[in-house]
Design a protein around this nucleic acid. Structure first.
Length: 449
RNA sequence: CGGGGCAUAGCUCAGUCUGGUAGAGCACUGGUUUUGGGAACCAGGGGUCGUAAGUUCGAAUCUUGCUGCCCCGACCA
């Protein structure tokens, strides 16, 4: 993509409404634009990041056996009356009346709809286990939206729903999502730690929040330091096999949010030098809730014995529009965003330091073509303008590698590569630079791990 | 929902206290010169000062209502 024909409205000055660093950087780097309280337009660069996050989630959901579909944003109130949640859900739920005076709502979650679909079509235990998910916009009329898309009213969320015959089968479905989540966050360049979460009226041990450590996190968290270096399950993990050893490994070390912390147990089971007390951002939650919806909504299947059997469910959420600021909180510096390659809007930014100079332009056109031919996603800054502004923009938007081509180096047949994260600079010939970037970027995509 | 604050050009803000012709920097347009860390100069364009009413000879400025947005708290993926 040529920057001269792209749409990238970067801001030099800090918008006054933005308090935390990710919100400031998302506005400054031209990722989002606020349209009203808690409502954001995703500008091209931001939308590209969102799409990359979505791709990773879809790949890992598929690997774990979940099947993608799409449910509407607006739902009928009738379904919610059936589950008993229409009145139970507070003012967070946006209620709408259509021209026929029918009660609708903008879905804050989708248990009712998915359970309705399930009960319509699934009649036999032989069709289980089943895990259906979608990635769709939700709305929760937060009392106080804040921190940009970290806590917006409209947000994009992946929500998966598992259906199983009995608790033990449901546990296996839960484990599959648990492992998928570990892989999903890792691929985005995040270290997300599963922590015990409230299980609500059902009880049991089957709910975890996945937390990314960050100073600006909304909740206090406590965990064992070794969780930060725990090995991530490999791509060839057998999701139909026994995942218990992986789960045991991850849940054997203490980790809990401030709502769930048992300080005595924390101090007893975690040696003092290994204790981490920090702040964190919740980027996902997995939850087993049994027959909470299938019961009242009459979703049952015929079991192996020919009798009607209960269906046990879980739900598994990932907030995509929250992940973008979470990644930025975890990866930025004073100059701007530092994207991990796997979610970066572009992998390389080619900086032509002297647009309009025949020699410089020709060399950059050649490099641009070669970068694309090498399969790299490149943003070419071909605009007129000073070098300083180009460096500043490149650093701000956080593209992982900068290929810097100026008249000085080009005369010598050389270009410079800057690693945005480390700041390391290497000077080399054109073809060597292409090879260098290809070799550096491909493994960092983390799409084969 | 309780408490606090803000609303003037695309952005950051001055002007409001003490009423008297709408301002700066950046951004934008045209031109000239520049070119390795947010360039310089010249010439321009752009605002019914959030909105409605009131006070006044006269309101960005004073009064009141309304709306929007931000921050703290309670709530939340």
């Amino acid at each position: 993509m040529r920057l001269s024909s792209y749409f990238l409205p970067v801001l030099k000055e800090v918008p006054k409404e933005a308090e935390i660093v990710s919100h400031r950087l998302m506005l400054r780097a031209g990722l989002i634009r606020q349209q009203a309280a808690g409502l954001y337009a995703w500008l091209p660069l931001g939308y590209k990041v969102l799409r990359k996050i979505q791709d990773i989630i879809e790949q890992e959901q598929a690997r774990a056996g979940a099947i993608e579909m799409l449910m509407p944003t607006l739902q009928s109130a009738d379904l919610w009356r059936e589950s008993g949640r229409y009145d139970a859900y507070g003012k967070e739920m946006l209620r709408i009346t259509d021209r026929h005076e029918r009660d609708l709502l903008y879905g804050p979650t989708n248990e009712e709809v998915i359970t309705d679909i399930f009960r319509t079509f699934v009649k036999s235990y032989k069709e289980l286990p089943l895990n259906l998910y979608h990635i769709q916009w939700k709305f929760r009329d937060e009392i106080r939206p804040r921190f940009g898309t970290m806590r917006s009213r409209e947000f994009l969320m992946k929500d998966a729903y598992s259906f199983d015959l009995g608790m033990e089968e449901a546990r296996k479905s839960y484990y599959r999502m648990f492992v998928a989540y570990l892989r999903t966050y890792y691929r985005m360049g995040l270290t997300a730690i599963p922590m015990k979460a409230e299980t609500g009226p059902i009880g049991g041990d089957l709910s975890h929040e996945f937390i990314v450590l960050a100073d600006t996190g909304e909740s206090g968290v406590f965990c064992h330091a070794d969780l930060l270096d725990m090995p991530i399950p490999a791509a060839n993990t057998d999701f139909n096999g026994d995942l218990t050893p992986i789960i045991d490994q991850w849940t054997s070390l203490y980790a809990a949010t401030e709502d769930m912390i048992d300080m005595a147990e924390f101090e007893k089971t975690v040696p003092e030098p290994k204790r981490i007390a920090a702040r964190g951002i919740e980027v996902g939650q997995v939850f087993y809730f049994g027959t909470k919806y299938t019961g009242p909504m009459g979703a049952t299947v015929t079991g192996p014995d020919g009798q009607e059997a209960e269906v046990h469910c879980g739900s598994y959420g990932i907030g995509l529009t929250r992940l973008v600021p979470a990644i930025i909180e975890a990866s930025h510096d004073d100059d701007g965003i530092v994207w991990p390659v796997s979610v970066a809007p572009f992998e390389v930014m080619l900086l032509n330091l002297k647009s309009g100079d025949a020699e410089c332009d020709a060399a950059c056109e050649d490099l641009y073509g070669k970068l694309k031919a090498a399969g790299l996603d490149v943003l070419y800054d071909d605009r007129e303008g000073g070098a300083g502004a180009k460096f500043a923009t490149a650093d701000l938007i956080g593209v992982p590698y900068q290929l810097i081509a100026g008249p000085r180096g080009i005369k010598a047949g050389e270009v410079e590569i800057k690693n945005r994260k480390t700041g390391a600079r290497d000077t080399m010939g054109f073809d060597a630079a292409i090879a260098f970037l290809k070799a550096a970027i491909e493994p960092e995509r983390r799409d084969k791990v």
